[in-house]
Design a protein around this nucleic acid. Sequence first.
DNA 1: AACTGCGTCAACCGCCACTTT
DNA 2: CAAAGTGGCGGTTGACGCAGT
Length: 263
Amino acid sequence: MGRAPCCDKANVKRGPWSPDEDDTLRNYLAKHGTGGNWIALPRKAGLKRCGKSCRLRWLNYLRPDIKHGGFTDEEDNIICSLYSSIGSRWSLIAAQLPGRTDNDIKNHWNTKLKKKLFAAKSGVDQNSNNHELTITDSSTTSVPIEAEALVNGSTTITTSSSYMINMKYQQNYDYPGLVLDQIDQFTLPGLMEYSITSTANDNYSMSSSSQEVSILCNSSSFAPENNSTAWFIDGGAEDQGILLDQLDFEGPHYLFTASGQQI
DNA sequence: AACTGCGTCAACCGCCACTTT
DNA sequence: CAAAGTGGCGGTTGACGCAGT
């Protein structure tokens, strides 16, 4: 037996809130607060709404100091950075952005940021015979990487030991040279997915539509802490990662190679 | 003017975790 | 300890408006 519904769905109003309903809820909460019980609130306030609906309306729209729209570049960067490191934990991300609700951030991500992030072109020469992937770090911190790539203008990727990752850090620097050991392709309806494996079994996941391939490094991060061979591709956990064998600095570009030695 | 496709976003749904009975 | 109640969360939906044809 399933759990009982939180309200009688046949006798509650649904859909957009009217200004009168907003006033009723706002006035009631100003006088009485939630009383610690959202389920009982609509009956006490004289609203024909589900308690959950009242709570959502208050938290996402009526609550004072709520900001709607007009996300700044700084806020975008914070969202992208946090999404890269913790994923779609919208409530946690919202906690870092005063005045923003999780719903607002989720909508903003789904309608704008996701496209913006993955639409940024990698700069890979599609006519090249090389299978090069470019990772672009969109974050303002040194840890998370949100990545995207074009793979030689083709959606057909076969397992190979010669794929390269060109890494770009903080949108300013390139870090070419990570050889991948294997790329496995999976096909889902309307979507192609890839699993990239390095020598150290550091896993990345990719998805694509048409000719654009995206890589999302869910658990890994790139940590360029200093200009030395101690740089590594972080494996996520404290004691995991791939040591870089060589790191050269050429103007704005860093070149590194990695044999896959795990740390 | 009518239609279609697309983007946006408020609201809903269902699940899970925690609290209360 | 189990069941019921509730809050909180993320995924999804659908109404609406706008642009393009």
